[in-house]
């Protein structure tokens, strides 16, 4: 049985992780279909229904300009999901590059790169992100890039550690003695085998990126109004805290559910991938060979 099928079979047995995956799929669908399923216009001002509480017309109420909160949350889900994926994509690319170079070449290259990682880790990342975003003109692309550029260190460390052990394995040494060059060894032989723990970190990283973006938007440094994001709807929730609880409740609940789903899927993947757990399972079920 192939490793991928074993992982899927083990993942499927984890009901919470499967539920998380289902929620993520629903959210992605909703984000893609937002323009078609949103009941109102995302910026349509309605002076007759300013700050109206949840009702049949407006299930999640309206904001201080009479805009439908559900509609704005649907559009906001596009921001959260795209920032989560793209920021993490950038982080994973940088992390793989730096981690594999450090782990493959070792020696002085490794020391210099790992000192650099230490330096980046010595920074309260959120503080650095704030500094960059406050100084550069705000925009969604900047947010993705900055979250990605400050979030690659875990991936780099993981990939490096995998490379350090994998490069001593027989199949790599065999390929090397058969005359394979460095590039081939890195990308064709070692990297594909070093990727599975990266998936776990990346899934958990998407959750982290979504949280960071919502905090930035909440502080007014992220997505700028009138464009909606979950974080900046919460800003108007804070401004109207005395009167409109619904502006604070629903967008935050959306963040919580989304982030929770990614965390559950990440943890589920971690358990499914971990070979140490495979061994015990085989032992318990009395199997000896896959």
């Amino acid at each position: 049985m192939s490793a991928r099928r074993i992982i899927w079979r083990r993942f499927r047995r984890n009901h919470l992780a499967v539920a998380g995956l289902a929620v993520i799929l629903v959210l992605i669908t909703a984000a893609i279909l937002a323009p078609h399923i949103a009941p109102y216009s995302k910026t349509g001002i309605d002076v007759d229904h300013v700050l109206s509480p949840p009702s049949w017309q407006h299930p999640f109420g309206t904001d201080e300009l009479g805009r439908d909160v559900l509609t704005r949350m649907l559009w906001g889900s596009r921001v959260s999901l795209s920032v989560g994926f793209i920021a993490m994509g950038i982080a994973v690319l940088i992390g793989i590059l730096i981690g594999s170079v450090a782990g493959f070449y070792g020696g002085i290259v490794d020391s210099v790169l790992m000192r650099f990682v230490d330096m980046m880790l010595a920074f309260p990342t959120f503080i650095l992100i704030l500094a960059v975003i406050a100084i550069v003109p705000p925009g969604i692309v900047i947010i993705m890039v900055v979250i990605g550029v400050t979030g690659w260190m875990d991936v780099a460390r993981l990939v490096r550690a995998e490379f350090l052990t994998l490069k001593q394995r027989d199949f790599v040494l065999a390929s090397k003695s058969a005359g394979a060059g460095s590039l081939r060894l890195i990308f064709k032989e070692i990297l594909p085998n070093a990727l599975s723990p990266v998936f776990v970190t990346a899934t958990l990283g998407v959750a982290g990126a979504i949280l960071t973006e919502s905090a930035l938007s909440f502080l007014g440094l992220g997505v700028q109004p009138p464009n909606p994001s979950w974080g900046n709807i919460l800003t108007s929730g804070k401004d109207n805290i005395e009167t409109a609880w619904w502006l604070s409740l629903y967008p935050g609940l959306a963040i919580l559910i989304t982030v929770l789903s990614y965390n559950l899927v990440g943890e589920g993947l971690r358990d499914a991938i971990d070979p140490r757990l495979w061994e015990t399972e085989r032992y318990e079920s009395g199997q000896t060979e896959e």
Partner: peptide, 11 residues
């Protein structure tokens, strides 16, 4: 883990 602290603060 998954709760934004600033949201909890608002609630």
């Amino acid at each position: 883990f998954s709760t934004p602290a600033f949201w909890l603060a608002l609630l």
